[in-house]
Amino acid sequence: MVLITLVSSDEQNFPVERELLKQSGTIETLIVNMNLDDEDTDAAAMPIPLPNVKGDVLEKVIQWMEHHKGDPVKEGDNEDNNAEIVVPQWDDDFFKPAMYGSKHLELTVAASYLDIKNLLTLSCKAISNTFKGKTGPQIREEWGVPNEFTPEEEEAIRKENEWSE
């Protein structure tokens, strides 16, 4: 089994099975461009630094990739199909502990940066599910966002949001 080492922004090393990394478009491109697959070169042993992906977030990303090992990797964006996507139970449980916090947002940003399409889609869908059918103040409360609006500003937006009939 070929292992490639990922290095997080806080200098933590994560040896990861080569096969798993095919889920990340960014890392896959690096591996191919840098000949990291060529065991006869020094490059094969080269670690891949991932600046700004912290160790705890990278650990979650790897955990997610391990569970989804072998899943087909999405090619491009089929928006019509994406609209109806449902977050599977395992993924829902995976996201739940970090929900309503910056960790989930960091995971989403990491998925975007590493170009892990399935993780990005499911993560964003899970976040959007927390907004569905909620009012602005409810979302504020759940996500711990301070209210910056004056009553007048809030009323003006509410009025703009109104639709006739």
Binding site: K125, S128, G133, K134, I139
Partner: peptide, 15 residues
């Protein structure tokens, strides 16, 4: 992308 118009409008009232 996953939100319909009413939810999108409500999001404007968050901050």
């Amino acid at each position: 992308f996953f939100l319909d118009l009413p939810d999108r409008l409500n999001m404007r009232l968050v901050c």
